[in-house]
Write a protein that binds this DNA or RNA. Structure first.
Length: 898
RNA sequence: GGGCGAAUAGCUCAGCCUGGUUCAGAGCGCCUGCCUUACAAGCAGGAGGUCGGGGGUUCGAAUCCCUCUUCGCCCACCA
């Protein structure tokens, strides 16, 4: 325990919990003891979680903090319960993100990846990964994550790469992977295709341009078309109207002239066109719009790609526009249209625009030859599993979102025009007229058809094409490994809702396709961490909180507790990023409270030689019976909360118990018996030790460090660790209604005295001589044993019998648990004030009584409510009647006094 | 256009699924008094809420249903 100087200037063991230097060594000890490692051979009762692999480029942020804390809490509890709890860690090669990082680095040297060439560039990325790639892994240790580090995987590892390749080949052989020219989302900055999920659509206040296209056979006539992307008109190859649109019936089959270009555009009729939108005439640009592409297919309108990979206008457009960026071209086109009298008008138009999820550049829908996965056949079993209840989402509402996406699933573009990633295992024969395409698990040397030279596809695969295999590729698939046998399927997946489609749904599909069953049964979706203004924490806003900084300031436990308690499943969590102390105060204060409770308890426990905590289970002392009863109750609550993934409730229940019951009352009551020559000292110490071990265990999954540190100092705990349990289960016969009622009555009495003291501003140092009458059995029982503690806690010098003391000025209270309290307060009491106060009590009681009597006189209630509810209501009425009678008596007496 | 979520104390949020416990709880903040030898990162006491509005179901609604308002999120090929 660290020593430091207290604010008062006295030097002693620190009264403030300082986690510095305590957490690291504990963690190292756990790892060295191999407590997180689970060999397949030993796994009898596995419980498995695979980490959502963070990007190898990432540094830990609070979102990771929340997500991984939740996983660690689940894993640690299962481990304590005796499961072979395996948490598989690793990182994702993150194609675009990582390539971007290294390209940026090159940029600072004035180089591009093309200057290096493919092989050198990839080598350079590997260098980067080897140097910085384990940063986030290291950081996960700092926040206490109990992953099996011997199993750390990387999506570009040799083994995982083999899995990727196997999957590609198998799907190709099943005709579930195909190559084709379709409209895809293209990021001109990253220079690659993106999947639908990687294009984020956001509302955008844009402009709608209305343009006239003259008719070929009647140049004085024209039709009006509307577009938000005028530059694409250079690629128009037709116009379309709705087949039932009377206005344009005679146009179908004729041609219009494309302004600025002069090309003749056939006018076709197609059901896609909405006659009510704009003019009801659509320009058809098959190479730059998915709908137009389909219209074009139906009517034989050729696609004309007018852009380069960088989204500048290409050779297919008239000379003045060539080489212009798409936005420059847009301005130029609009200006020229206006100059030539073809621009009818422009108007504001709200629509949504897709942006690259990696660099926020506006994506260009563009015709391109890419590799696709046919998703419908893969989705079917994964969807059925959900509908059959085999896959559960928490919160459940995410299930509907999953279902909706699965039902409307579209094919997945998996090729990326990048260098960093799994290279597509496809070779094309270069021999004239051969056309052989080789898709192979092993690199082929020559064309198997003609023996000609082969050229490998230059593209790599979407990063998620390796992620979706994660639950089994990390276990050695496609080899039939012992690990796979022992640990697949996994149990719980904890992740963020943003990647429900990217990752969760695809893993479900891959699990079925390649392993024949779901990869996990429960999916927890954790919320988003936001700043105090409710904004998402992000690098660009600079409003993030560094978990490592928080750990350095307040400890990992404080951070974990704050996160778990503050974030009920699926709800967002707001943290003040400008005041870390405020943000993490709840956890820090709680850790401090525990620390100080230990400071009080431990010396007493160690002054009892040979103390056996198990003796605490049989102590008959009232306070001991009470705290055991409370602990047993809390144990059940915490267990139930964990089972249903309500982690915040478990945290809350522990907090309320440790602070409100254990520290506030049990320790205070125990002080009397822990005195040097007190009788029952051994029993008290044993109970204290036993109960502490109990709640330290309950809290260990959430706050592993401080609980372990304290538990390690309990008597008889030298050899043990909380990490491996056991998870506590308290005997049902610890529940003790009598003891609970007694201590509850004691608390009420002490509270009443304290309230009256505060009400009349009696100095805390002034002892009061109180009088007590008609005490309930519960209170009498409590006082018989704990009178001394009650005196100390309430600041009472004596408890005398209640007499007819109407003449004595003082304060009165009627206890709910039964009993009447009088505090003579000569010279202090204000009679009028006391009368008012009691009158107010009478009013309050009468209000309650009125409600209760209202119910009891309502036949509907008597007939409709369950008997026990009615009984409870009757008891309540009787008690209230009694209380009110007493209070009115007092009021009467006070009115009669001077 | 479709779907979902949220609205409870000054702030951040529990409670709602499975309606009924002595006037709806916590943390933080606020007020008053205390360094009472585990803890001032604390202790004691206290103020503060017509549970977003309206309607309905019920003997009884923060809780179930409908509706409105305001925020937020997701999906979608409206040129």
């Amino acid at each position: 325990m660290a020593a430091s100087t207290r604010t008062t200037g006295r030097t002693e063991l620190s009264s403030r919990y300082d986690p510095t230097g305590l957490e690291g060594p504990l963690y190292e000890g756990w790892v060295e003891a191999g407590l997180f490692h689970v060999p397949a051979a030993d796994a009898r009762r596995p419980y498995v979680i695979v980490i959502p692999p963070p990007n190898v480029t990432s540094v830990l942020h609070m979102g990771h903090g929340l997500n991984n804390t939740i996983q660690d809490v689940l894993i640690r509890r299962r481990r304590m319960q005796g499961f072979d709890a395996l948490w598989i860690p690793g990182t994702d090669h993150a194609g675009i993100a990582t390539q971007n990082v290294v390209e940026r680095q090159l940029g600072e040297e004035g180089l591009t990846r093309f200057d290096l060439g493919r092989d050198a560039f990839v080598a350079r990325v590997w260098d980067w990964v080897r140097e910085y790639g384990d940063q986030i892994i290291t950081q996960l240790r700092v926040i206490g994550c109990s992953c099996d580090w011997e199993r750390t995987r990387f999506t570009l590892d040799e083994g995982l790469s083999r899995a990727v390749r196997e999957v590609f080949v198998r799907l190709y052989e099943k005709d579930l992977i195909y190559r084709g020219r379709y409209i895809i989302n293209w990021c001109p900055r990253c220079g690659t295709a993106l999947s639908n999920e990687e294009a984020e659509h956001r509302d955008h206040q844009g402009t709608l341009y209305r343009i006239r296209y003259p008719l070929a056979d009647a140049p004085e006539e024209a039709v009006e078309v509307a577009t938000t992307r005028p530059e694409t008109m250079l690629g128009d190859t037709g116009l379309a109207v709705h087949p039932d649109d009377e206005r344009y019936r005679d146009l179908v089959g004729r041609e219009a002239i494309l302004p600025l270009v002069g090309r003749a555009l056939p006018i076709v009729a197609d059901g896609y066109v909405d006659p009510a939108f704009g003019s009801g005439v659509v320009k058809v640009t098959p190479a730059h719009d998915p709908n137009d592409f389909e219209i074009g297919q139906r009517h034989g309108l050729e696609p004309l790609d007018v852009m380069t990979d960088e989204a500048t206008m290409n050779e297919a457009v008239p000379e003045p526009y060539r080489g212009l960026d798409r936005l420059e071209a847009r301005a130029r086109v609009v200006a020229d249209l206006e100059a030539q009298g073809h621009l009818i008008r422009v108007e504001e138009h709200a629509h949504s625009v897709g942006r690259c999820y990696r660099c926020d550049t506006i994506v260009e829908p563009r015709l391109s030859e890419q590799w696709f996965v046919r998703m419908k056949p893969l989705a079917a079993p994964a969807l059925a599993a959900y509908q059959a209840g085999e896959l559960r989402f928490h919160p459940a509402r995410y299930g509907k979102i999953y279902q909706n996406w699965m039902e409307n699933i579209r094919d997945w573009v998996i090729s990326r025009q990048l260098w960093w990633g799994h290279r597509i295992p496809v070779w094309y024969c270069r021999a004239d007229g051969c056309g052989e395409v080789v898709v192979s698990r092993d690199d082929p040397d020559a064309c198997p058809a003609c023996g000609g030279a082969l050229e490998r596809d230059t593209d790599v695969l979407d990063t998620w094409f390796s992620s979706w295999l994660w639950p089994f590729s990390t276990l050695g698939w496609p080899e039939e490994t012992e690990d796979l046998e022992a640990f697949y399927p996994t149990d719980t997946l904890v992740t963020a809702p943003e990647i429900l489609f990217f990752w969760v749904a695809r893993m479900a599909m891959a699990g079925y396709e390649f392993m024949g069953r779901l990869p996990f049964t429960d999916v927890l979706l954790n919320g988003t961490v936001r700043d105090h203004l409710g904004r998402r924490m992000s690098k660009s806003l600079g409003n993030g909180i560094d978990p490592i900084e928080v750990v350095e300031l307040y400890g990992a436990d404080a951070m974990r507790f704050t996160l778990v308690r503050g974030a009920p499943l699926g709800t967002d969590l707001q943290l003040n990023n400008e005041d870390l102390e405020e943000a993490f105060r709840p956890g820090r204060n709680f850790a401090n409270k525990m620390w100080n409770a230990a400071r009080l308890a431990l010396p007493h426990l160690h002054s009892e030689p040979g103390l056996d905590p198990e003796d605490g289970a049989v102590s008959r002392a009232l306070a001991d019976r009470w705290i055991r009863s409370r602990l047993a109750t809390v144990g059940v609550q915490v267990d139930a909360a964990f089972e249903e993934f309500r982690l915040h409730e478990a945290a809350e229940a522990c907090h309320a118990f440790v602070w409100g019951d254990f520290c506030d009352w049990y320790l205070e009551l125990a002080k009397r018996r822990l005195g040097e020559d007190a009788s029952g000292r051994t029993e008290a110490a044993a109970t204290l030790s036993l109960v502490m071990r109990g709640w330290l265990s309950l809290l260990h999954p959430i706050m592993p460090f401080i609980t372990e540190a304290i538990a390690g100092r309990l008597p008889g705990a030298e050899a043990g660790t909380l990490v491996t349990g056991p998870w506590p289960s308290f005997p049902a016969d610890w529940r003790d209604e009598e003891a609970e009622a007694a201590i509850e009555a004691l608390r009420e009495m002490v509270g009443a005295v304290r309230a009256l003291r505060a009400e009349y501003r009696v100095d805390p140092g002034t002892p009061l001589a109180i009088r007590l009458g008609a005490a309930s059995d519960a209170l009498a029982r409590a006082l018989a044993e704990e009178k001394e503690s009650a005196l100390r806690l309430a600041g009472i010098s004596s408890i005398g019998p209640l007499e007819d003391d109407a003449d004595t000025p003082g304060a009165h209270a009627v206890l709910r648990s039964g009993g009447e309290l009088f505090i003579p307060l000569e010279g202090v009491i204000d009679l009028k004030r006391e009368r008012d106060r009691i009158a107010e009590e009478v009013r309050r009681t009468s209000d309650l009584l009125r409600r209760t009597e209202g119910k009891l006189s309502n036949e509907g209630f008597l007939g409709g409510a369950p008997a026990e509810v009615v009984d409870r209501e009757r008891e309540k009425r009787d008690s209230l009647l009694e209380q009110r009678a007493r209070l009115e008596e007092k009021l009467h007496a006070l009115r009669g006094s001077p």
